[in-house]
Amino acid sequence: MIGLAHYLVLSALLFAIGLIGIMTRRNVLMILLCIEIMFNAANLAFVAFAKAWGNLDGQVVVFFIITVAAAEVTVGLAIAILLARQLKTLNVDEVSFLKW
């Protein structure tokens, strides 16, 4: 019988994979993609909790998360385009002029 724990473990693994991606990739777009993975991991947990508790609030939250994620991607991609245009790079290691 597949229970809540299964879904939560899957969610945790997915979250960790996204995290590792953020830490290891250097391309801005890749990092944005990995953020999407993490969003989805959270979504999965919310939906699973909604089912476990027997109400729809979890699913409503997922609805909002999807909306916010869409907005985030829009702005993030705009910034990525700007970076590529102005600095001719998408490598986050090279965009380090905010130090000191």
Binding site: G3, A5, A12, K51, A52
Partner: peptide, 20 residues
């Protein structure tokens, strides 16, 4: 990941599903 899984295991969240 390991910490989250450990928390899930400790939580004993294997309850029954409900209608949603």
């Amino acid at each position: 990941a390991l910490l989250l899984i450990a928390i899930v295991r400790r939580g004993g969240l294997a309850g029954t599903w409900q209608a949603a």
